[in-house]
Design a protein around this nucleic acid. Structure first.
Length: 184
DNA sequence: TGCATGGCGCCGG
DNA sequence: ACCGGCGCCATGC
């Protein structure tokens, strides 16, 4: 079986955003008999070309199912990300699909998605809510592998002492995102 | 199997 | 406020 994913990019205040998406995926087709779910599935979203390139490389390594990438932009993805950056949108409608994830990564990313807009949690607190109490060091590493920035709001995870902590997309970007989520 | 490596936490100085 | 040092634990090589 061959699955087609679409990729595109667009410019924003936090740099060029590269993304990969699809409007259905294998599981849907198997369960519903090829019924197409109109929901946008987001596989990748990042403001760094390096992480985009390595994601593409990993896709190429997959044997079954075979993923094919085509260029095609998504109005939903672009408009929602731009609206978010303009403080006009708090929650995204796109549903993330994690193609590559270890057990801890999946749990950590899901737990991070529960941190509400405008709120923050420490790496230690996130470790506890994800069911890996005590593994806060590994949680930081897992967040670094987040394939969908903003959708999994890893920018809302900061250090226990209140300082900003690291961020794959740039610590200045992390600060900007946290700032725009604060009420005026 | 072992060991170095991380988006960390905590305590001292 | 800012280190260094040690402890932490899942991964990758």
């Amino acid at each position: 079986m061959k699955v087609t994913l679409y990729s595109s990019s667009f410019n924003t205040a936090i740099g060029c955003i590269y993304y990969i998406w699809g409007n259905y995926f294998q599981d849907d087709m198997q369960k519903t008999g090829a019924a197409v779910n109109q929901e946008i599935k987001i596989y990748f979203l990042s403001n760094t070309p390096d992480s985009y390139n390595s994601f593409i490389e990993r896709l190429g390594g997959i044997k079954a199912p075979e993923y094919k990438i085509a260029d095609k932009s998504s109005r939903t993805v672009e408009s929602e990300v731009k609206a978010y950056l303009e403080k006009k949108l708090k929650d995204f409608s796109m549903v993330p699909v994690f193609l590559f994830s270890s057990a801890i990564q999946q749990k950590v990313w899901e737990a991070a998605m529960k941190i509400p807009y405008g709120k923050v949690a420490s790496y230690k607190e996130l470790a506890e809510s994800a069911g890996f109490s005590g593994a806060w060091r590994a949680v930081g590493t897992a967040l670094g592998k987040n394939p969908v920035m903003l959708i999994v709001p890893c920018h809302r995870v900061i250090k226990s002492d209140g300082s900003i902590g690291h961020f794959g997309g740039g610590e200045n970007v992390k600060e900007l995102l946290l700032g725009l989520e604060q009420p005026d």
